[in-house]
Amino acid sequence: MKFPIIAAGILMATSAVADTPVLTVYAPDYFGSEWGPGPSIEAAFEETCACDLQYVTGDVLPRVLLEGERTKADIVIGLNTDVTKKARESGLFATHTLDLSPMTLPIEWSDDTFLPFNWGYNAFVYDNTKLENPPTSFDELLAMPDDVKIVIQDPRASYSGLTLLLWVKSVYGDDAAEAWAKLAPKVLTVTKGWSEAYGMFTDGEADMVLSYTTSPAYHIIAEEDLSKSAAIFDEGHYLTIELAAKVATTENGDLADAFMAFILTPEFQTMIPTSNWSYPAALPEDQWPSVFVELNYPEKAIFLSEDEAAAVRDEALAEWQNAFSQ
């Protein structure tokens, strides 16, 4: 069944040898894998650009920082908002001149370097057939009995873990340490990445897992499983935004600009929900798949700018570590 795709890939690769310009896009592993949004985006863009789009997947920012100005990347996609400050300071990224009015993020976005291509809300996901009274606020979560077990990700190793830190800090401010002290007994364990944590949740080892409000959409659409829900909190949810940027040293400036513009097109954006399992960054809600529209949706978005986040990060990390060292 997959053979045609592979065969097509080989054919395209060989036919593209000659003078076709190559656009090199650094992307996270998940993005470029067969099950991520990468392949269909590649196919769609190549139809318009007369070019060969090639992904190089891995840990994008560390790789670009290691390579410095000699990097072969034209575009970097899949950066998180926690690294934009470091990325910006490196001077390796160029600004764009795109019109940001089509953006449909729940917050204002005016960054002229980093362009959102999808977003989501962090949320605790649970099994609605087992947990009868899910918390409707962070306070309620903290007040739950300690035998409700939650798996989170380590903020030092995982981006989603870091957003939880910022989320708690935004909601509780100076009382964040206290909040962590209440949450810690319920935390079954802390994992290196999202995959381990989510695996433990689907295995039934944990009652709740730190994930995204859009996670249930996968189970509904791909597995017709309605039992997974995201708990929606009154205090609001922290935003996760994934970004793309043009590399300053690119020799394919026009192609890179074209790709950046392509990101904001409906063609690109409609591919996001069911391949990235997140919300598209520039697509009105009425064009979302119905399942996404029907998902529980937070009332309030929480987001710290990169400077605000940088200002509280070390303190928040220390509070977190202290809470778990008791």
């Binding site: 992307a27 592993d29 998940y30 470029g32 894998s33 067969e34 099950w35 991520g36 090639q54 992904y55 190089v56 997947t57 891995g58 999202w194 995959s195 989510y198 695996g199 689907t202 295995d203 996670s215 996968y218 189970h219 791909a222 399992w277």
Partner: peptide, 21 residues
């Protein structure tokens, strides 16, 4: 790896990242 030569462990993680537990 540039993603085109995935080994089995990398593929395993890619599957997990795509919710395919």
């Amino acid at each position: 790896s540039d993603g085109s030569a995935q080994t089995l462990p990398l593929q395993l993680y890619a599957l997990m990242s795509a919710y395919r537990m």
